[in-house]
Computed example of a mutant assay.
Amino acid sequence: MSRAEPAGATAPGAPAASGASGASGISGISGERRAIWTLGLFRSELTITFRRWRTLALLGVLAAVPVLIGVAVRIETGEGGSVGGGPEGGAGGPAFIAQITNNGLFLVFTALAATLPFFLPMSIGVVAGDAVAGEANSGTLRYLLVAPAGRTRLLLAKYATTLAFCLAATLTVAVSALVTGALLFPLGELTTISGTRIGFAEGLLRALLIALVVAASLIGVAALGLFVSTLTNSGIAAMATTVGLLITVQILGTIPQLDAIHPYLFSHHWLSFADLMREPVYWDGLLKNLQLQGLYAAVFGTAAWARFTAKDINA
């Protein structure tokens, strides 16, 4: 979907798109008008992002994963088989899979555990990688800089939009899993990983908290993808590079000889969300995950800002 050029945009080659254009464009505007413009810019970015067919296709694929898992479990158990390794099979997907037939709400936890290692971060990498590079490739980036937003505000709007997509993608998986689980399996009280019983309402609340934690686990990937997007004018190259980095990090995390660097990989604590299904909740892994994501967001967000504010926009 193409972006319409803003009113008052200058012709290509005009000096308004120079490195200082953002600052000069907002110097004479009141704080209230700047805030209104920033909110309008964020709303515009949201609208454009979520109207793209690519974005809708990514959400469609994510929504299909819980359906496939639920149907597969239903078929397997319908033939007298069993799935997973039982409640003590671990803190991740297998333990939750074993519980799906008893309570469809466990499909939410299983689907999030299944999509978090690859599908969710890949979709975030596609959106984040295209955020700046896609605009530069289509020639609309310079026209955005003509408007009185400034490069910093534009970058923040794009990062906020990517974070909104993180939340939307995670909730898409969770809602699809909840609906599928309710249709294929019974609902009721849940047995936690610790073996205690909790009510369905509390289980539903924990499912929401887990979805929010999973969404927060992707803010580091979003910052990394945005930084990569500022390094090139090719949206495809930025998306491919970001996805390639995701795959590389996942591979590094499986090599025992590199265990010294594992705690510093952004994916190391991703599955700590399972600790929310313990009684009492284990907070150590969750807090370490959030701290690590915040560190990645700060480092690569700052790098993206430094690159973007100094970038020469010629397209």
Rank of each mutant, 00 (worst) to 15 (best):
A237Q: 14
L209I: 03
A160G: 13
P280F: 05
L59K: 07
R54K: 11
S21M: 08
L155K: 04
S44G: 15
L258P: 01
L183S: 15
L290W: 13
A160D: 02
A160C: 13
G31E: 12
F300I: 03
G13N: 12
I255K: 06
A298K: 11
G28H: 09
V126Q: 04
L58T: 03
T161L: 04
G90P: 07
L107P: 00
L224Y: 04
M1W: 07
A177N: 00
V214H: 01
R43M: 10
G28N: 11
A147F: 02
A63W: 07
F273T: 00
T152R: 11
F118D: 10
Q293P: 09
S21R: 11
G253N: 09
R153E: 15
L183C: 13
A182M: 14
T242K: 02
T101Q: 09
A168P: 09
I36D: 14
F96P: 01
H269W: 14
V67A: 12
R151C: 01
I236D: 14
E135T: 06
P186L: 13
A14R: 12
P66A: 08
G92D: 09
S194A: 13
L286A: 06
L184C: 09
I69T: 08
I100Y: 02
F96E: 02
L271Q: 10
A35C: 08
L184F: 09
N102L: 05
G203H: 05
Y264E: 09
L245T: 07
Y296P: 01
I100T: 01
F227Q: 04
A298W: 05
P256Q: 11
A222G: 13
T161C: 08
I313E: 04
G301S: 07
A304K: 03
W283N: 06
A174R: 00
E76P: 04
A168D: 07
I210Q: 00
K288F: 10
W283Y: 11
V179G: 05
G84D: 06
V126R: 01
E135Q: 11
D259R: 10
G25V: 08
Q291E: 15
L120G: 05
A177T: 01
L68I: 15
P12G: 03
W53F: 14
G31A: 12
A222L: 06
L59C: 08
F96G: 01
A238W: 02
A222Y: 07
G28A: 11
A131N: 04
I97M: 12
L62V: 11
Y159N: 02
A4E: 15
T254R: 14
A111W: 00
V228W: 01
L258V: 08
